[in-house]
Simulated assay, not measured.
Amino acid sequence: MSVRFAILAAVFLATLVGAGAAKADAQICDRPTNAWDNAAQANGISLYTLEWSPFGAPEWGWETYTPLIQREIGSPCDPASPAFAEALAGFQARYGLMATGQFDQPTFQVFRGLWQERRPFVMARVRGECPEPPPINMLGYLSPQEEHAERMTRLLRRDVLEAYRRMAAAARAEVPAIAADPELMQIFSGFRDPEADAARCAAQGNCDGLRRAVCSPHRTGTAIDIHVGHVAGMGVDSTDPMSRRHMAQGPAYRWLVANAARFGFTPYVFEPWHWEWTGDDTAAGGR
């Protein structure tokens, strides 16, 4: 078999597999579920119009959170579809909520609790602990190609760095749009020295536990901020609702939501760019 023929055969097979997966998703999402039509209609409206403040500041709609929600309920379907409403109702029933199939704030609080519990750093803070930074000999240097130009960071824990490298390579191999943009998947913040972080907190006065924490997960060398895209004129870590929504709909974030657990990483729901290594590809919500 010639090399050219082998390559063509591999491409053809990949196309068939992708088409088969897309067809399967379409069959799941398009099947008749008339019982959930009203819930689907309500979700389609609230997706863009819900006025709420899940993290303190006002937001419109819940589109930013749909990739994580779709993964959690095991549905690839559009949030305005009856199939999504049916899957959401199943989730609500499992967690003792009213199984309406409609997205609401009590349901989001359950999602948020599950996502937070998967972050070992958060659970340490619940116990009243602030983890100590790792010894310097446990930290490794990022290469220039791994660092985002806007922020020059140098260090991560070595095991985390290796996991990140495997993850970034997989993302670029699996998604052409990520491979085509060398900035996507670059890191703009990794290990941060606690003393330097404390000084910046004092200088900028923004350590409110949301935008930045007094005891930051970055002190552990296991937290990374990944460039997943940004709105022109806004920073790569802008918490503006429009910016976060834009990031959450991009190819890098969507790939991370679907695949980061394979490499032991779990997200912080408020920041699409922030991921933490658990050291366990099942503890991060892997399926």
Score class of each variant (00 low, 15 high):
5 F>E: 14
238 S>A: 14
151 R>Q: 05
164 Y>V: 04
236 V>Q: 15
24 A>Y: 05
64 T>D: 10
216 S>I: 02
213 A>L: 11
120 P>N: 04
148 H>F: 13
65 Y>K: 08
167 M>A: 03
237 D>K: 03
59 E>P: 00
250 G>V: 05
201 C>S: 08
255 W>A: 01
22 A>D: 11
6 A>P: 02
18 G>C: 07
127 R>S: 13
26 A>T: 11
43 N>L: 03
211 R>I: 10
108 F>N: 05
260 A>Q: 03
178 I>A: 15
101 G>Q: 01
142 L>F: 15
94 R>I: 12
165 R>G: 09
245 R>S: 05
245 R>H: 02
188 F>K: 03
6 A>W: 13
223 A>T: 14
151 R>S: 07
115 W>E: 05
27 Q>N: 08
28 I>R: 12
93 A>T: 03
6 A>F: 11
25 D>V: 01
156 L>N: 00
205 G>P: 13
225 D>P: 06
161 L>H: 05
58 P>I: 11
255 W>F: 06
200 R>D: 14
270 F>L: 14
184 L>Y: 10
79 P>M: 04
149 A>Q: 11
75 S>R: 02
57 A>W: 08
193 D>W: 00
109 Q>S: 13
196 A>G: 03
275 W>F: 03
130 C>L: 07
107 T>S: 15
56 G>N: 13
76 P>A: 11
241 P>K: 03
149 A>W: 12
113 G>T: 02
9 A>R: 14
188 F>H: 13
231 V>G: 03
74 G>E: 07
119 R>L: 12
67 P>N: 09
193 D>Y: 00
12 F>C: 13
43 N>T: 11
89 A>M: 10
95 Y>I: 08
157 R>K: 10
149 A>N: 06
97 L>P: 10
36 W>K: 02
16 L>P: 02
172 R>N: 05
35 A>Q: 14
248 A>F: 06
204 Q>E: 12
